[in-house]
């Protein structure tokens, strides 16, 4: 398995469990905080949560896979959310998706770039139809996008990374 190295330390999960008093009824909230801390839900952490909450690992896995908010794969530093809701879709969100997939070497199955910098998520509606088509990078909203602007945005993020790294 390739899950040998973690981004954050194990004490995160301990802190989250303590905060919620090991209450199995708070499983969703616990998983949310764990995902915030680790950027995804690692298998071993889920197994540990199951142990601590005294539920089966299968039940934790069931909840984690039920909600599309949870991800079981590590996410990139920049999560790019492209809206493909009705308004964005008619304004050609699909062109934006293609350009991102091409630039980052992603496809329907592969959602995160090899350098763990970018993750592409296609979402149903971001609730900003007036700005369609909309792209979000982490918490930042970019409205009235098109293919060129999107390519430019990725280039900018990469340059920034280059400077910082």
């Amino acid at each position: 398995m390739s899950q040998k190295v973690f981004a954050t330390k194990f004490e995160n999960v301990c802190a989250v469990l303590e905060k919620y008093g090991n209450d199995p009824h708070r499983l969703v909230a616990i998983l949310q905080e764990i995902q915030d801390a680790y950027s995804y839900l690692p298998e071993d952490i889920m197994a540990y949560v199951a142990t601590a909450l005294r539920v089966t690992p299968g039940a934790v896995y069931g909840v984690a896979t039920f909600y599309s908010h949870f991800t079981l794969q590590p996410k990139g530093k920049y999560v790019i959310r492209v809206c493909d809701g009705t308004a964005c879709h008619v304004k050609k969100a699909s062109e934006i998706i293609s350009v991102i997939e091409k630039e980052l070497g992603l496809n329907e199955k592969k959602k995160t770039s090899d350098d763990l910098l970018f993750t592409l998520e296609i979402v149903a509606c971001l609730g900003a139809c007036g700005l369609a088509p909309v792209v979000m990078v982490n918490e930042e909203v970019h409205g009235s996008m098109n293919a060129e602007k999107t390519a430019e945005l990725i280039k900018k993020l990469r340059e920034e990374e280059g400077r910082n790294g």
Partner: peptide, 20 residues
Amino acid sequence: VGALDFTGRGARSAVVTCFN
């Protein structure tokens, strides 16, 4: 024991073991 459980949702629902 709970060795089997549902995962996913809607058309993607499946009965699987933990972590598949």
